[in-house]
Structures are given as structure tokens and as C-alpha cells.
Nucleic acid binder design. Structure first.
Lengths: 265, 265
DNA sequence: TTGCTCCTCACGTCACGTGAGGTGGC
DNA sequence: TTGCTCCTCACGTCACGTGAGGTGGC
């Protein structure tokens, strides 16, 4: 196509323009802002009619193909699948309902992505690992992989409200909490005296915790997916993530608390 | 696993709990809130280590598998691909940079989806077809498929600013505009007199349009993808979407406008 | 002749899902 | 015995992309 007299407006030129343009696949793809692979894909999917061919087999696209291709591109951009686009040409369903369904889908997707972004912001702000369970993003700094593993399991078992109680407790424990340090440092082969010392140290905060959040005395009762599910998940996780000495210390501290509560009550 | 004394807290139970639980694939999947197919997929992708087996070949998962599975799930939920998750275990790159890249991606995706939602809102409000080019959603009501095809091609060729000029012109044309109706009704075999009549009727608004938006006298000059691209796309589209009689009327109206402008100037 | 374009066909990608065909446990 | 679960393997899905292998046009 030669450039015409620049003083001449488009309609004047168009009236003399060859009616049957013949675009190649590449030209068609360029005009529509897409790729030749995409054009061929739409042929295979029978979304786009095959054009005439030249003697050597080259495809010759017309304006109708460009318009259809642009239509398909537009519909995929708003979120329709190719199958849905094919159906649109068929028995005409309520187009308004289709649009509303699309919109609702987009709304849900956006909400989900925004939640993820909020979680990423917490991850950045508090410098915690990316795989930190979202409920503990603000308090997980400095936790070991094992601790985070336990929190991940807990996150599967408890509701948001209970998870927030756990988070609140964790936020109240200072980094240099003596009982926590003693517990964490308990060696695998700790003797009974060491275990007892850790338990005694742990007991007071354990007592105040269960007084503040009574559900913590048996989390099976508040597990939304059922007590069996909670027990099957949390017991092994706790048993696996703490050493036997630590588990003994926990059990012993628990005993101390129960005795103390019974005496005070 | 039997339900233990309900008065006993979790740590106490855990200390007596068998250290090596053995979950089946289904149990593991349930605990992680996913499917057995997903678990097996992660094995094939070598993201999740294969557990021990029983004599009959059944897999026996441990807590470590659950924790790893939860980690993978968490990372896919924030948008990492499985390949990226595998890389995370490898040479540790800057994790903060990875998070920021993820966040930027999410931000762009959300922005795109919100643009689409805004376009859908226009589609619903103005009752136009879903494939209407977004720039013309507010004025495309009642347009023929051919007209919308032309607008789709134009949308590929012009910038947002020029498209908005076109939209503004269309908004100003009342539904019962005489010249427009005359032009639209021009029969295929219209005689010269009918064509001339349509041209004369069109001329005034055509003149005021080019005076208001001078670029319209030759849109090749403002086409962001170049004059050749604009001409190759728009000329055939115009030539194809209007009848020869209509094209003649457009060309003639253009001539009238040019003559009038020359006389007045 | 050279480089560029066009064509078809088969297979790859991504994160799984589906289904076949067979075995083990209660 | 019946129904339920487990296993592997191969192929399907979605919207294309990649690459091979070959031909045509300037």
C-alpha cells in the first residue's frame, strides 16, 4: 500500500482502496497486537474461521478476520475462556448474567490478592521468612524453623480467633524471658533436676496463659475441624518438634499448674 | 489414636505419644487441606521427599512431611511457582528482593483486574455488548456489529487521547441525527443524487469535527504505531465496513468540506 | 545464493486433575 | 464377599509457546 496524497482524508482514500486486502498471518497478528501462534491456536480451537489461501498455501486474511480476532482478544482480556467465547456465538444466554458472574469472580480474585499483599507487607515489615503462617507474621521474628513448623500445623487446626490469642501470648513473651530460654536450652539428655527446674520456671506463665485463654487447656474443644483432627495433627507435631526432655518439662509444668489451681480453688 | 483423658493438656499427652506417626497420603492431604493428587505431584516435582513405605507399598508420612507440605502450600498461595519454591532451598538469594518482586507483580495484577472491573461496570451500566472496545463503552449502545468492528480496529491504531476525541464526537451525535440516518440508510445501489444528498447533509458536522479535532483530517499523523500501520489497518476496515455508496458519500462530503474551508479561509 | 517468511506437526509448559487397571485391608 | 483405600502410569486441561523440518519469495 502506497502512502496517498497526505492532504486526502481517509474516507476518500478508502473508496478507491482494494476491497479485498490480503494480510499474512504475521500481519494479522501484528494488527491485532498478538502473535502468529495465537492466531493459529484460535484456528485449531475453531474460534477463528480459516481464510482463503494463495496458490502456495499462504493464508490471506480479510478485515472480517481482524475484527473477529480483536473480539476474541478483547473477550479473553476480560477473563473469558476460549470455551466460553465459543459458547457466546451459540445459543445466546443472558449476557448480563455472564458479565455479572465475571465481575464477581474478579472481585473475589482481587480480594484474595489484596489479602496476600497485606501478608507480604507484614513479612517485609517484620523481617520474617516468607513461609511464616500469616497469623503470626508480626511475632515470628527470630523463631526457629521448628517453631514455625508447629505454628503452621496449629494454623491448620485453629480458628482465626484462637490463633490471635496464641499470637497475643507470644507477643507478651520478651526475647530474654528466662523460663523460655531455660526451656529452649534444655539438652536432649537433661537430668530430672534440670527438667524440674525448667518446669517450675515455666509454670507461672503457663498458669496465667490458661487463665487468660481457658480454651488453651484443651484445644481439641475449640478446633473447628473437630477434636480428632486437632489431636491427630497437633499431638504428633508437638511430640516431633520438641525433644523428650522438653516434652517432660511441659508435662511437668502442666502438672504443677493443675496442682496449684486445685489448691487455690 | 484414642481420645485421651480430656482433663489432660496437650503437652502431657504428647510426651507419651508415639514419636513416629504414620499418615497415609489421604490423611496427609487432609491435614494440609489439599488433595492426594497434589501431594503426589510434589513428589514428582521433587519438592517433597518420599516417605518410608509399609510392606505393601503404602506411604507413611511423618510430621516433617506435613510441615514441608504446609510450607509449599503457603508459598504457592502467595504466588511462587513450584520451580521458585525449589530454588528457595538452593543457593539462598536475597529473600527480601524476592518478596518485593512478588509484591510488585501482585500490585500490577490487581491494577489490571481493577481496570477490567471498571470496564465491566460500564458495560453493565450502558447495556453494551461485552466485546465493545473499552474506550467506547459509554457511547456504543445501539451500534451495529460493523460499527463496533470499526471501533475495535481504530482502538488498535490510536492513542487513548484521540480515542477519547472520537468518543466525544459520538456522544454529541443525537440518536435521531438526520445526516447520520440518511447516511446509514444509503442503499447499496444509491444513485448519484442520493449520494450527493447524503454528502451535503454530512458536510457540516464533518467540518465542525475536523475543526474541533484537527488531527482527524489525517489520522495517520497521530497514530502511535506509525502512519503505515494506521493506514494498513484503518483503510481496509473502512472500505470493508461501509458500502461503496457510503464510501462515495464520505469522499464527497470531505470534498465539500475542503472546498468550503478554502473559500472561508 | 542468502536471508526472510510461510506452512504443518509434534511436543512442552504450568499445576495439577482424571481415569484406567490393579492390589490390599476390614 | 463387599466396599473402601492405596498404588502407579498415562493422558487430559488451559492457552498458548517452542522447535523441527520443509517450502516459497525476493
Amino acid at each position: 500500500v502506497e502512502r496517498d496524497d497526505p492532504g486526502e482524508a481517509v474516507p476518500a482514500v478508502a473508496s478507491r482502496y482494494a476491497r479485498d486486502v490480503a494480510w499474512s498471518t504475521r500481519q494479522l497478528a501484528d494488527l491485532a497486537g498478538t502473535t502468529v501462534k495465537t492466531v493459529r491456536h484460535y484456528h485449531r480451537m475453531e474460534l477463528l474461521a480459516l481464510p482463503e489461501r494463495t496458490a502456495n498455501g499462504y493464508k490471506q486474511y480479510q478485515v472480517s478476520h481482524l475484527v473477529r480476532l480483536l473480539q476474541i482478544r478483547r473477550l479473553t482480556e476480560v477473563g473469558l475462556s476460549l470455551a466460553q467465547i465459543r459458547e457466546l456465538s451459540g445459543p445466546d444466554q443472558d449476557p448480563d448474567a455472564a458479565v455479572r458472574a465475571l465481575d464477581a469472580e474478579l472481585e473475589a480474585t482481587i480480594a484474595r490478592l489484596q489479602r496476600v499483599r497485606a501478608e507480604l507487607a507484614v513479612v517485609i515489615e517484620h523481617g520474617v521468612p516468607l513461609d511464616t503462617p500469616p497469623a503470626f507474621g508480626t511475632v515470628a521474628r527470630g523463631l526457629s524453623e521448628r517453631d514455625r513448623g508447629l505454628l503452621a500445623v496449629l494454623s491448620q487446626v485453629l480458628d482465626a480467633g484462637e490463633l490471635d490469642d496464641v499470637r497475643a501470648l507470644m507477643a507478651d513473651v520478651p526475647d530474654d524471658d528466662e523460663a523460655a530460654l531455660l526451656f529452649a536450652a534444655l539438652p536432649e539428655d537433661a537430668d530430672d533436676a534440670a527438667i524440674e527446674a525448667a518446669a517450675v520456671a515455666l509454670a507461672p506463665s503457663m498458669r496465667s496463659s490458661t487463665e487468660r485463654f481457658p480454651w488453651m487447656s484443651d484445644l481439641r474443644e475449640v478446633a473447628p475441624r473437630g477434636p480428632k483432627f486437632a489431636q491427630d495433627a497437633v499431638l504428633p507435631a508437638v511430640a516431633d518438634l520438641f525433644s523428650p526432655a522438653q516434652l517432660q518439662a511441659l508435662a511437668r509444668a502442666n502438672e504443677i499448674v493443675r496442682k496449684a489451681v486445685a489448691e487455690d480453688g
